[in-house]
Design a binder for these strands. Structure first.
Lengths: 126, 126
DNA sequence: TCTTGACATAGAGCTTACTCTACATTGTAT
DNA sequence: ATACAATGTAGAGTAAGCTCTATGTCAAGA
């Protein structure tokens, strides 16, 4: 098994996150890459999977502060497994509500669009 | 038919938007309530429906700038009906994609939760 | 050796969408 | 008449999440 390591530049391309953003995430303790002998960051494939998960949490509306908390638990190993799972379950609930809400908005939007369509048709028929 | 008018305080309660927010929205030309003889804002039921729609657009991720554009069209009357409809159709598409994306995230989140569950069970069985 | 480019840190600046402050004016109850 | 609560304007401040600048280090190619 080979462990690949990436410089911040490579990792930036892989994750499509800017270098500045990666350093910002590190500053916020979301991710803690290793360092080589010259103090350069060394990201691994594990970091890559982790960043993908962070993105998922972000895209589903979790604020950085909360991801930070999750990251902290993660850094503390197996003892925090159930705490992390609880966080995810609670987030799952929020996400479910979010989707329900958006679907409702979609329905109303469709009504509005139909309404417009009818109005435009009426004007055209004049 | 009676037209009710509301002061900013009343309207704030009806919409559950802060007074400051309502003034900010006016400043950004999202809404343009009338004024009475003493220069106080007079909101109507039409404004109420409009705010509800603004909220819907916001909650589905439309930025203020774009809502501003929509409001501008709206202020220009019937001539802009189809332009407005096009905006809504395009927004509908974005919303649809957003929902699809969130559902995908939900699936992955479920996988992760199951993974955690299995891990925790394994540890418990030891 | 010299230069160039990627990387390092610390901290400033930006964008969005509010939210609040300071201060003046007006409507209403006592 | 007077107090006080609601409203008005202008502009400052806040929070989140980046994004950029200034300055310095270091390894590798010409």
């Amino acid at each position: 098994m080979i462990f690949l390591e990436y410089s911040i530049g490579e990792f930036s391309k892989l994750t499509r996150l800017g270098i500045h953003t990666l350093r910002y995430y590190e500053h916020e303790n979301l991710i803690t890459p290793g360092r080589n002998s010259s103090n350069r960051r060394c990201y691994t494939d594990k970091d890559l999977a982790w960043i993908d998960f962070i993105k998922r949490l972000k895209d589903t509306g979790m604020p950085i502060k909360e991801i930070q908390h999750y990251a902290e638990l993660r850094a503390n190993g197996e003892a925090t497994l159930s705490a992390r799972m609880e966080m995810l379950i609670s987030h799952r609930k929020a996400l479910n509500e979010q989707i329900t809400q958006l679907k409702e908005h979609m329905g109303k939007l469709d009504e509005k669009i139909e309404f417009y369509q009818r109005k435009i048709d009426n004007i055209a028929r004049k």
